[in-house]
Write a protein that binds this DNA or RNA. Structure first.
Length: 510
DNA sequence: CGCTTTTGACCGGCGC
DNA sequence: GCGCCGGTCAAAAGCG
């Protein structure tokens, strides 16, 4: 009995041992299978990682290529900037009689920067020489409108440059820099404008008399109006001249005579510009309204209109006048900008007709402004223009040989931009109407109504005659379009010839 | 500490 | 002459 029990126990133990072995085997198989799955997964992940690495390397390579390309473009631009034999880009929509015939010796130009490229270049990493985004496009908010908006003051950069923080995006602080160093010395709230006006002084040289005022357009807070006054009595930094090239100097692209005018040894690239020619069709007589030294830069990023109200016969006797004679002028474009000259004084066909006091543009006419709708991207202006130019192999400065189609297309695209219209209106208003905005302060004069798009504002035919003859004014209209906007003053301002002593000038930059 | 911005006061031109 | 207005000054404060 005892033996039976022992046998039974032994059998049970043996069965249990068998079960254990089977379980172990099963577990082993299970683990084996799991390992296989993990191994497969591992391989898949490895392949995936390889793919990612390949993509990463490809992207990196592309990035380096692009970066290198931009660096080359920047250096090219710098070289061109500093080169007296700089190339010129001129998109002329007309000709002014006050403009001397273009000198033949002006070199042909092959703009290497389109507006797109400009935008790219300005948004890339900081360049040691040219205005970086921090120095060029970025606008910190220290200008006229800053106190009116609760911007964090601590974020303001304090390097003496203009700073404009876009109101649309408080988090994004953008700065505007025209190359010079400015110090704010005052701020005032001008009558009729809720935005305060800021006063800056050039600090590059302690004795530099140049001052500038920055004010936001009351009608469009995104528009900055900067007024420059005075002439730099010092060498401007490269960035300043660069900025000058993009703005007021851009105006000179129109009719660029190339003069190294012996009498006027201008150490700086000339920033003398030409202007917008408008015509008042009054009593069947065309009265030219010429906005000298004005330009429009339709950069997609920062559409800039330069309106220089300087008399083109300014005396340049000031020892501090570093501007070249109004015309012809030398221009060293850094970027491809565009100057629009709206008509030719020599032409009987006025591109701009004044009907019943309203300011209209004729369509489908060379040199005219077309404010009609257009969906063509602005950069196409440059592309088509450059393409046409290269195809024709024509020198850029030979503006008279521009294809009318090109001009017309470019004009249409540029001027159809609502921003452009707004900006142009603001500029003209600020200049023509003086301090008066809208109809304020315009009483007593027989004004015309300048109609741009849906907006109208008065214009006087007597505008260029008196009050502005002693001032050199360049107005840049710079409409911030979300990202940033930039405008700058010309390197050497015009000389203000207050009657006899042209010491300062006024440049308006919007 | 040096530089810049802020801001109220001051000054001069201009119109009434 | 007075007041308005734009421009400038300068002390105080902020920032790196």
């Amino acid at each position: 009995m005892e033996v039976d029990l022992r046998n039974t126990t032994t059998q049970i133990k043996q069965e249990q041992h068998k079960d254990c072995i089977q379980e172990d085997e099963m577990q082993f198989e299970l683990t084996k299978a799991e390992m296989g799955e993990v191994r497969e997964e591992n391989q898949r992940l490895r392949v995936h990682l390889d793919q990612i690495m390949k993509d990463y390397q490809t992207l990196q390579k592309k990035f380096q290529d692009i970066f290198h390309q931009q660096q080359q473009q920047i250096s090219t631009a710098i070289n061109r900037q500093t080169d007296d034999e700089s190339e010129l880009v001129s998109l002329s929509l007309g000709r002014s009689s006050s403009v001397e015939p273009i000198k033949k010796d002006k070199r042909s130009s092959t703009p290497t920067k389109s507006a797109e490229e400009l935008g790219l270049a300005l948004s890339t990493a900081e360049s040691p020489v040219i205005p970086s985004p921090d120095n060029s496009l970025e606008e910190a908010k220290d200008d006229a409108g800053e106190t009116s908006t609760p911007q964090k003051p601590s974020t303001q950069k304090r390097n003496g440059d203009d700073q404009e923080v876009l109101q649309q995006n408080p988090a994004k602080k953008t700065r505007m820099n025209d190359g010079c160093q400015w110090r704010k010395y005052g701020q005032k709230i001008a009558k009729g404008n809720p935005c305060p006006r800021a006063y800056y002084r050039c600090t590059v040289s302690p004795t530099c008399p140049v001052r500038k005022q920055v004010q936001r357009c009351p009608q469009d807070m995104s528009i900055l109006i900067t007024t420059y006054e005075g002439t730099h009595n010092h060498q401007l930094p490269v960035s300043a001249t660069a900025m000058a090239s993009t703005t007021s100097a851009a105006a000179s692209m129109l009719t660029l005579g190339s003069t190294t005018s012996g009498s006027n040894s201008n150490p700086f690239p000339s920033t003398t510009s030409h202007g917008l020619n408008f015509y008042l069709n009054e009593n069947s007589k065309l009265k030219p309204v010429y906005l000298p030294h004005s330009s429009i830069s339709p950069s997609p990023l920062c559409p800039t209109v330069t309106l220089d109200l300087t008399s083109n016969t300014l005396s340049t006797s000031s020892p501090y006048n570093y501007r070249s004679p109004p015309m012809p002028s030398i221009f060293h474009p850094r970027y491809s900008t565009t100057n629009l000259n709206f008509s030719s004084l020599e032409s009987n066909a006025s591109p701009i007709s004044w009907n019943n006091g309203s300011f209209n543009y004729r369509e489908n006419q060379t040199g005219s402004l077309n404010f009609g709708p257009s969906t063509q991207p602005q950069e196409n202006i440059y592309h088509s223009f450059l393409k046409n130019k290269s195809m024709m192999g024509m020198p850029t400065t030979n503006q008279h040989s521009l294809q009318p189609d090109t001009i017309e297309a470019a004009t249409r695209v540029i001027t159809s931009d609502p921003n452009f219209q707004s900006v142009l209106q603001a500029a003209l208003t600020s200049i023509i109407g003086g301090a008066a905005v809208g109809s304020e302060g315009l009483g007593g004069k027989s004004g015309q109504t300048l109609k741009l798009g849906d907006d109208t504002f008065p214009v006087f035919s007597s505008f260029p005659s008196t009050s502005n003859t002693n001032k050199c004014s360049t107005t840049f209209i710079n409409k911030s379009m979300g990202a940033s906007s930039m405008s700058s003053q010309a390197a050497g301002s015009n000389s203000r010839s207050k009657s006899t002593s042209p010491e300062t000038s006024r440049d308006h930059v919007v």
